[in-house]
Amino acid sequence: MASEVYSPTTAPNPKSSWCLVPSQHLDKVRFLIKVTEVMFSFVAFILEEVVSSCNSCFALYFFEFVSCTAFLFTLLLLVLLSTTLHTRVGITCWPSLDFWYTALIAVLFFVSSVIFATDNNGTILEKSAVLFGFMAMLAFLVDLLFFYKTSGLPCQKPESSDGNPAVGAAQAETQKLNSDP
């Protein structure tokens, strides 16, 4: 009896969900790519931590720093962009931050993996850590390419035919408003 009275007027609130994927800053594909980045970075970090000895420890420590940093900060970025927490941080340029952070970590993973690959004891753990380092680097590169393909560079503004970016943005907005759905 009660369900007949309340069912036509009540509807679930879609904004009450804690996870907002897809969201304004993160679609489903990029969410899965970011989860992959976190996983590969974590496995690379764990494998590196299990290494018990090193001849020249600089390569090991640098790889440790990069993999741990990539794991922790990418996990933080993933949580911020897939929940409503990003609205409470006070950062307004999330696409730019995401793009340049991902580019920096991809470069650091490449450099640290190359250095660690050339300067290690040749154990299975070290080779596995290097492999996961390169896999994480590839995941970050895929993220960059997908970001660029779908959104372009975050620091570029659309220009109009007369070279004025503000007029170009206003014309694009007018075109969006006047287009048929």
Rank of each mutant, 00 (worst) to 15 (best):
V142C: 07
K28L: 07
F116E: 09
S82W: 01
F134K: 01
I46H: 03
K157F: 14
Q24Y: 02
T83K: 05
S17Q: 14
P12Q: 13
M135L: 15
F40Y: 10
V79Q: 01
L80A: 03
A117N: 11
I33E: 08
H25L: 08
P154G: 04
K28A: 13
S128T: 08
C57W: 05
T84D: 13
A117W: 12
L47K: 14
D162K: 15
A70V: 04
S96L: 12
T92P: 01
E37M: 07
V66H: 05
F42H: 07
I124M: 12
A59F: 04
S67P: 08
L145G: 06
T69G: 08
F146W: 14
E173G: 01
K15E: 14
F40C: 09
A166K: 14
M1P: 03
A2W: 13
A172V: 02
I33S: 06
F45S: 13
H25W: 08
S52Y: 07
V5A: 06
T174G: 07
K28N: 05
H25M: 06
A169C: 04
V89N: 02
V130D: 04
A136N: 14
T123K: 08
T36L: 08
N121I: 07
P8Y: 10
L20H: 14
W18F: 15
V167Y: 06
V29F: 10
A170P: 05
